[in-house]
């Protein structure tokens, strides 16, 4: 038992934050989507890959105590909504810090970390998290 193709096909998006830019209106999306919610069918076939810088600012954050099994060893962990300098807003963890160091407006940058594992013998899922930008 384990999750394979569902995770694998997101590799570029989660490893390198590859999002999409609408070739019609120029708006940047992350997570990626196939249709621009502004341009609708005019955007079809014009959504182009674009890599995020990974730099951004904390819009809101929480300290999660009741954690699902995948995150039990990290609890409590900080989960935040982050507005990237590239435009899009996303959800991710802030690590290597304490809650007292984080506030709405704190600048962060992305790092490459282990997100979860399929038990002891399954695949390891990697992706982006954030650290405070020094």
């Amino acid at each position: 038992m384990g999750e394979l193709s569902r995770m694998w096909r997101e590799t570029d998006h989660r490893y390198r934050m590859v999002g999409e830019k609408c070739g019609n209106c120029g708006k940047v999306y992350f997570p990626p989507r196939d249709i621009c919610p502004t341009c609708h069918r005019d955007s079809i076939g014009k959504m182009n890959n674009v890599e995020m810088s990974g730099n951004g600012v904390v819009v809101s954050f929480t300290i999660v105590h009741d954690a699902p099994p995948a995150f039990s060893r990290q609890r409590p962990y900080i989960l935040a909504i982050i507005k990237l300098d590239d435009g899009p807003t996303l959800t991710g963890q802030i690590v290597d810090t304490t809650p007292s160091e984080i506030d709405i407006g704190t600048r962060v940058r992305s790092v490459f970390r282990k997100i979860s594992e399929d038990g002891h013998s399954g695949v390891i899922h990697y992706g982006y998290k954030f650290v405070k930008d020094q």
């Binding site: 290597d96 790092v111 490459f112 282990k114 997100i115 390891i124 990697y126």
Partner: peptide, 16 residues
């Protein structure tokens, strides 16, 4: 290492 760091994450950060 943090609980979410391993040789892959360290290698990626060093490479970047």
């Amino acid at each position: 290492p943090s609980p979410d760091e391993d040789v892959a994450t360290i290698s990626v950060e060093a490479s970047r």
